[in-house]
Every structure is written in structure tokens, then in C-alpha cells.
Design a protein around this nucleic acid. Structure first.
Length: 443
DNA sequence: TCTGGGGTCCTGCTACGA
DNA sequence: TCTGTCGTAGCAGGACCC
């Protein structure tokens, strides 16, 4: 690396590629194939088992038929009727993800998980001990394969954003002849950043979705290079100051975001799409009991309290509204969340039919920072003791062992917040089937 | 025939106090 | 006392990500 090159570095860019973006291949599907190896080679779809679900992950065999994540389950079934549809086991993915993150942390403490199946790693400090970033990327891939039986792709670059694009370039591609294997590791040296970046379609930029893409297309922007060549003022005028500046910087290869190992969560929520739209307020209020219990439980598990309570209501026509309120005293208890969310729900007319209801808590702070109310100071905490006891019982006997009486049905307690319905409303047990042909018979 | 769940971040508007 | 300005907080909605 010459000195002249170093002076050419863009803000935030390392002189060498030391940032890794690791992305697991079709993670949820791959975990399912570990546990059900007889499904290997077949089109497998995780998610979309219900009527209103969407696809969370698709195997490369399913992708060859045009199935992709976020597609509605109905469309996925039309494109690939012989696929095996699985409803997903979130707890299992969390378990495997934790093992993978442990592997990452054995190389560097600077690990920023983005989701269960991807993370940024800053390996600048590990290079002297282990080897170059490319060597580390190769070692990590091999160890994940050896220890967990899973494959992944790694992008290596001088910034987070380029590393993420690089991992995309390393991925296998689906085709009708089966998956076309990628390189597994793709390195973009800082000197090659612009030549790698400029030909990419502008939607490759992080933050360009359908709405922004439409605006950019109206400006004649098709590639990242097109956007980079525009005066920043034009982009800011079209997209607003923050987004305009951000995207223009990314298009020119500038990205000064660091790998943050200890990012704080900003909100905790739970929402559900119902199998059928609900029109009765009493039904929605009953759902809120479970949501408040789930959110409060997660707040306590994270040792956090919240100041803001928000409900989200999506009607049958997909129109979505939110209502929020800020509490005088931060809380982590279910009765307060329930009382507040019910008051917010009272502002909403559900008669048009509610498709989805959600409850979230934000304005989070460490639980120790909570001030006692005058009442609590005088009488001692009341509900807090009960909440702690509930948490202890759940830790010992499982999430469904105790809960609000109103949620007790013939099957026992329905524990919300266990990711039961992560990819859409579940159908009754006997109507959720893995593919049209039971999913296990030979084709 | 549609469009999940769990998040983050940003923008525009309004209210309010200094 | 009235009016205008400014900063901030709260609220609602939108866009985006995996």
C-alpha cells in the first residue's frame, strides 16, 4: 500500500480491509436441514405455513422457482407447489445463532450482530495474532462448517457498508440447474472500492427501498455511480437532508460507522396478525393482556424499564395507525403496560376489522435507574414482587407454566412472546402441513 | 391474491416553556 | 401584557432493514 493511496482514503475507510460481514446461507432453512437431513436437495421454505404468512427463508432449490423471502405464502405455493413448507422454530435458530456468535468472538471481541444470521466483525486487532482479514474470514467459514455444519459467506472490506456488499457478492446464486456456488469469501481492497461500487444498481445501497428508488429513478439514477456523480445538493433536495447526505456519501464509498459491539436496544415489542380480522374491542383487549405480559417479561429479562408505550393497529385494508403515550414513571410491569395500551386502544374504532395488533415499549432505561413512586416509597413495591416470582416460575418450568388467567384455554396458557407466530398466524395444528405431499415422501 | 414480526431511524407537526 | 422566536419533547406516520 503506497503512501499516496493512504492519503486517498475516504473518511471512515481503513487503509486495509479489516472489517468482515458474515452472512449465513439460507440460515433458517439450513438449520432445518441439519435436523431433517432427508429434506436435502428438495425445495424447502421456512415460514408461510399459515394463510396470512410470508416466506422467512427459502432453500436454493426453492429460489430456483422464484421463491424468495418476504414473499406471501400464497404466491410461494403457486410458484413451487411441491415445496416443503415449515412453520419455523425460532428458539432453535436462536440456539444455533448463539454458537456462531461465540465462534466470531473467539477471533475478536468487536462483533456487532445485525440479526440471528449475520454480523459485522472488526478484526484489525486480531490480524497480528491470527493472520490477515482474508485468512480470518476463511478460518471462520471453516470453523462454522466443522462445528455447526453450516455454510456462510464473508465480505471483507475497509468499511461496514462495502463489507456487506462484498458478502452479497460471495453468496451462492440460485439457478434452475441448482445452486451455483459463490466464492465464499469476497475481498474489496480500499483501492478497489469505487470500481466495485459504481456499476451496482442503486438499490444495492443500504437505505434504498421501493419509495426511495422511485424518487431516484425520476432523477435518472440507475446505478450507484449515477448517484455519486450528482451534486449532493440535488440529492438532499430530493430525499431530505439526512437521507440525501447519507446515500450520497455511501455512493461515493464514504462510511464512517464503526463496528459497535455493545449496541443498546431501543424498543421491545410484540405484534400479531390474526387469522381473521377482529371487530370487537373486547377481543383486542384480551390480546393486549398477553402482549403486555410478554413485553413486560422481556423488559425484566433485559433489566430495562420503558417510558413510552405504543400500540399499532392494522386494519383489514392494510391501513396502519399507531397511538402512543409517555408515562410519568418508567415501568416494566404488565398491569401498567396493559392499562396504558387499553387507554390507547380506546381511541381507535375497531369496527372496520383489525388485522394486526401490536404493543411496544420504548424510551428504555436500565431498571436500576427507575425512581420509586411516592406510593411505592410509602408501601413498598407491590406488583414488582409478583413479577419477579412469575419470572422465576417461567425460568424453572417454561414460558407456558404461568400467565394471565384470561389467556388460559383448553390447551393451557398461550405464552406470547415466544415467537410462536413469527412468520404469520398459525393455522390450527392439523391444518399446518409441510408441503402438499406431507413433505416427507419421495418425489 | 396479496402483503409477518421485530426492530431502527427519520420527518413533520404540535404544544409548551423560556 | 402581548407577541415572536427558539429549542425541546411528544406524537404519528413512513421507509427501511433482516
Amino acid at each position: 500500500m503506497s503512501n499516496s493511496r493512504i492519503t486517498d482514503l475516504r473518511p471512515g475507510e481503513r487503509p486495509f480491509a479489516t472489517i468482515l460481514h458474515v452472512d449465513m446461507d439460507a440460515f433458517f432453512v439450513s438449520v432445518e436441514l441439519l435436523d431433517q437431513p432427508e429434506l436435502r436437495g428438495r425445495p424447502v421454505v421456512v415460514g408461510g405455513a399459515g394463510e396470512r404468512g410470508v416466506v422467512a427463508a427459502a432453500s436454493y432449490e426453492a429460489r430456483a422457482h422464484g421463491v424468495h423471502s418476504a414473499m406471501s405464502s400464497a404466491q410461494a405455493r403457486r410458484l413451487c407447489p411441491h415445496a416443503v413448507f415449515l412453520s419455523g422454530r425460532h428458539h432453535r435458530y436462536v440456539e444455533v445463532s448463539a454458537k456462531i456468535m461465540t465462534i466470531f468472538r473467539s477471533y475478536t471481541p468487536l462483533v456487532e450482530p445485525l440479526s440471528l444470521d449475520e454480523a459485522f466483525l472488526d478484526v484489525a486487532g486480531a490480524e497480528r495474532r491470527v493472520g490477515s482479514a482474508t485468512t480470518i474470514a476463511t478460518l471462520i467459514r471453516q470453523q462454522i462448517l466443522d462445528d455447526e455444519g453450516l455454510t456462510c459467506c464473508v465480505g471483507v472490506a475497509g468499511t461496514k457498508f462495502i463489507a456487506k456488499l462484498a458478502s452479497e457478492a460471495a453468496k451462492p446464486k440460485a439457478s434452475t440447474k441448482g445452486p451455483q456456488f459463490g466464492t465464499g469469501v469476497f475481498v474489496v481492497e480500499p483501492a478497489a472500492t469505487l470500481s466495485f461500487l459504481r456499476p451496482l444498481p442503486v438499490q444495492a445501497l443500504w437505505g434504498v427501498g421501493p419509495a426511495t428508488l422511485a424518487k431516484l429513478e425520476r432523477m435518472g439514477v440507475a446505478t450507484v455511480g449515477d448517484l455519486a456523480d450528482l451534486p449532493e445538493a440535488n440529492v438532499v433536495s430530493a430525499l431530505g437532508r439526512s437521507q440525501g447526505h447519507h446515500l450520497h456519501s455511501l455512493a461515493n464509498g464514504f462510511d464512517d460507522r464503526i463496528v459497535e459491539a455493545d449496541r443498546q436496544i431501543k424498543s421491545i415489542g410484540h405484534e400479531e396478525t390474526f387469522v381473521k380480522d377482529h371487530r370487537e374491542r373486547s377481543t383486542l383487549e384480551r390480546e393486549l393482556v398477553g402482549f403486555a405480559d410478554a413485553v413486560a417479561s422481556r423488559l425484566r429479562k433485559s433489566e430495562l424499564v420503558c417510558r413510552t408505550v405504543q400500540i399499532k393497529v392494522r386494519f383489514g385494508d392494510f391501513n396502519t395507525i399507531t397511538r402512543s403515550a409517555t408515562l410519568a414513571v418508567p415501568t416494566d410491569d404488565a398491569p401498567t403496560l396493559l392499562q396504558t395500551s387499553r387507554a390507547l386502544l380506546a381511541q381507535v374504532d375497531p369496527s372496520a376489522g383489525v388485522r394486526l395488533l401490536g404493543l411496544s415499549a420504548s424510551g428504555l432505561a436500565p431498571a436500576g435507574a427507575r425512581q420509586l413512586t411516592l406510593e411505592e416509597a410509602a408501601n413498598g413495591p407491590g406488583w414488582e414482587d409478583a413479577s419477579r416470582t412469575i419470572d422465576e416460575i417461567r425460568a424453572r418450568f417454561g414460558a407456558g407454566s404461568i400467565g394471565p388467567a384470561v389467556l388460559v384455554g383448553p390447551e393451557g396458557i398461550d405464552p406470547k412472546g415466544q415467537q410462536r407466530q413469527q412468520w404469520g398466524p398459525n393455522l390450527p395444528e392439523d391444518s399446518v402441513r409441510p408441503g402438499r405431499d406431507s413433505g416427507l415422501s419421495p418425489r
